[in-house]
Design a protein around this nucleic acid. Structure first.
Lengths: 221, 221
DNA sequence: AGAGAATTTTAGCAAAATATAAACATGCTT
DNA sequence: AAGCATGTTTATATTTTGCTAAAATTCTCT
């Protein structure tokens, strides 16, 4: 179980690395964003622990970049600040958990364990229905053993909603609401038709059925 | 309107049940997963309100199980935790809405109403007469165990009216009025004949009978 | 049986709903 | 600024539906 620790305070880094190793993890320690980047480029890690305040920038940028590159490695943020806003910003950036200094070693270990457990559950969370497999982590689908095809965010949201509520008719209005939490002039748009058409091109015609005048159904068998 | 409430905190359960009843719902209260399961086995509910943290397991498992059994009852989750991840996990499991404790009664009622409205007509009420099953939600029929055949809006309206008033003779004029609430030039059209013919093609000849000069009858046995 | 009426079936068209493709917009990366 | 990826709108094609009207069939009554 390999972790990357990004921490510029040598003393803290040293001691953390020590206890992590005691708990059975393999740890690489970086002390700048730059070095962390090169570590990530060469190795695969199960999880990264990032300090936010760093000499050459904020750990947040790093997360942003990784997420854009679709790097799935979960991230736990360490920070000295503990405001509500910071936490929100951190999590919105794409971090998976958040710990404020100072903290007890035990708490870090507990959170790590929880994160890894949750993550491993998520990794294997490719859920399949009627020959269509949806990869939650990677935002991808494959149909009947064809190769994976990655979806855009909207395509993915729609398909996921349909697959989570199969065999039910969902009106276009409903689906629009699902796609865009804030409802506006819903009926004035044919977005649902457009996205259904796209999904059908990936999955085949028959899996998402039209109920004329009523809506769409993802059929589970 | 019947609800199932699964909540192990007696006090909360009691008070919730009370206010639900005040709002016009019929409520059954379960305090363990086990009892909830048996409630579900014996009764039909329009909606279930589940607490997640329970003595004998998590409410999430319950949802998972129900969904696997294709049980369509919508579920609202109650939880003490309010992290982004928890919410996602809950909704991904197949819950339909999510409320964190503590909450105002009014909010719960509002959400219930919204959920039931959204869901209404979706819950498969399949009603069977003389071997003909009509699926209200899906606008489908099947006759004597053949596969489902979905109907157009007009076909459905007609069949539904006939099945709701079986063993009675309905004149063509009356049926036309039923189909098109406001139309007058009734006699000038053979719409009823056309649609009866279509329905007979799906259901077999004998179920909708002709009373020459008088009208049509759906025979209930 | 056979004429005339009532019903059934068929075919086809126009309107409505949906599907698809392509243009346009926007933001992000290089 | 150019180039991409995504989201959204617009325009056009295709499909399905509702309906009409005519043709075919069945029934009824003499």
């Amino acid at each position: 179980m390999k972790l990357l620790l990004l921490e510029d305070d040598d003393l803290l880094a040293e001691s953390l690395a020590e206890s992590l190793k005691d708990n059975g993890y393999l740890v690489d320690v970086a002390d700048t964003i730059k070095s962390a980047t090169s570590f990530m480029a060469t190795e695969e890690y199960e999880l990264a622990i990032l300090d936010i305040g760093l000499p050459d920038g904020s750990g947040l940028e790093l997360i942003t970049r990784w997420r854009k590159q679709k790097c799935p490695t979960p991230v736990l943020i360490l920070t000295a600040r503990d405001t509500w806003e910071d936490k929100v910003i951190g999590l919105e950036t794409g971090a998976d958990d958040y710990l404020t200094k100072p903290f007890h070693e035990a708490e870090l270990m507990a959170r790590l364990k929880a994160l890894l457990r949750r993550q491993s559950g998520q990794l294997s969370k490719i859920f399949t229905l009627n020959g269509v497999s949806l990869d939650e982590a990677g935002q991808r689908v494959c149909s009947e053993g064809t190769t994976w095809r990655s979806l855009t965010a909207t395509e993915f949201r729609l398909l996921r909603y349909l697959m989570l509520h199969p065999d039910r008719i969902h009106s276009k209005e409903r689906l629009l609401e699902q796609l865009y939490a804030l409802e506006q002039d819903a009926a004035a748009s044919n977005l649902v038709e457009v996205y259904v058409a796209r999904l059908r091109r990936y999955l085949g015609k028959s899996i998402i059925q039209t109920r004329r005048g009523q809506g769409y159904v993802f059929v589970s068998r």
